[in-house]
């Protein structure tokens, strides 16, 4: 009996001690899954990774010439490279806007990414809407309308495990001007005004700093004459403030609608170009 009284007293004291403390309450019970991809883009396509509020992501992308050109062209490094500078700004943790400029066709693009849904314990995947409008700014006599192209897509992504993330990207690209191009040996190849693709991307983390990635954008329905699917493989190196991406891609075009319409190299024929992207994120507060 005495022993029971002692236990009861100890229990009471323990309860009193607990009551004296503030109850521990989570500020936000919604546990959003993060870092599906380490950068706002997979390779050519955007990823669901968002620019946080009041952060700026500066990116420099290079894609060199075809690797199959051999040692005389230093595997494409001597060839004319496409270069894109991009700035993206996080308006909120779910919405960002961006501006970029590519060397090929002097394309200037402005776009947005809106993470409508985020993967959490309550929801199984990310769903993001993306879009851009691009202008060919060359001095070539094109009308304002003919210079414009558009890209709209939906990004559906899931972090399957700590290592593996996958993304599906149904996309639509539209060019106001569909060119007819004369090709060597005669004949005309026609581009299409509208293109539909189903981007498939994946990232596999080998460590906290290194991951592999792959991307394939098969076209649904018609495609521009002489074009091939965009296929890219690469690796990410995460260094804290920077993400370095090195890749091989069939596309020298960086803006997605141009990549969907004008990729003329074939992965199955070993026609790929070496490229790299550097992402750097800044806080502005």
């Amino acid at each position: 009996m005495k022993k029971h009284l002692v236990i009861f007293a100890v229990l009471c004291l323990t309860v009193l001690e607990v009551v004296a403390q503030l109850p521990r309450e989570r500020s936000n019970d919604r546990q959003v899954v993060e870092e599906l991809f380490w950068a706002p883009s997979v390779i050519i396509l955007p990823s669901v990774t968002q620019i946080p509020k009041d952060n700026i992501n500066f990116s420099i992308q290079h894609v060199f010439g075809n690797v199959s050109s051999g040692i005389s062209e230093l595997f494409g490094l001597d060839a004319s490279a496409n270069i894109r500078f991009g700035l993206d700004y996080g308006i909120s943790d779910q919405l960002s806007v961006g501006l970029g400029r590519s060397r090929f066709d002097k394309v200037v693009d402005a776009g947005f990414k809106w993470n409508v849904l985020q993967q959490s314990e309550a929801f199984p995947l990310y769903a993001s809407a993306i879009g851009n409008i691009a202008f060919d700014t060359r001095e070539n006599g094109y009308s304002t309308s003919d210079r414009q192209s558009y890209f709209v897509g939906l990004l559906l992504a899931r972090k399957v495990s700590e290592s593996l993330s996958i993304q599906l990207s149904p996309s639509w690209a539209h060019f106001n001007l569909a060119r007819d191009l004369q090709v060597f040996g005669g004949g005309i190849e026609s581009e299409k005004n509208d293109l539909f693709g189903l981007g498939m991307s994946g990232r596999y983390a080998l460590s906290d700093q290194v991951s592999l990635m792959a991307e394939w954008i098969p076209m649904l329905g018609g495609r521009s004459d002489g074009s091939h699917d965009v296929v890219s493989v690469g690796a990410n190196l995460e260094t804290g403030g920077h993400v370095f991406q090195v890749f091989l891609s069939t596309s020298q075009w960086i803006t997605p609608q141009y990549a969907m319409s004008r990729t003329r190299d074939s992965f199955s024929d070993g026609e790929v170009s070496f490229g790299f992207t550097v992402h750097r994120v800044f806080g502005i507060q």
Partner: peptide
């Protein structure tokens, strides 16, 4: 007596990537 607690998921450093890390 003194009693403090913070939900560490609310920490903000101004750079989202650093917060995630």
């Amino acid at each position: 007596t003194v009693d403090f607690y913070i939900d560490l998921e609310t920490l903000k450093t101004g750079i989202g990537k650093r917060d995630k890390d």
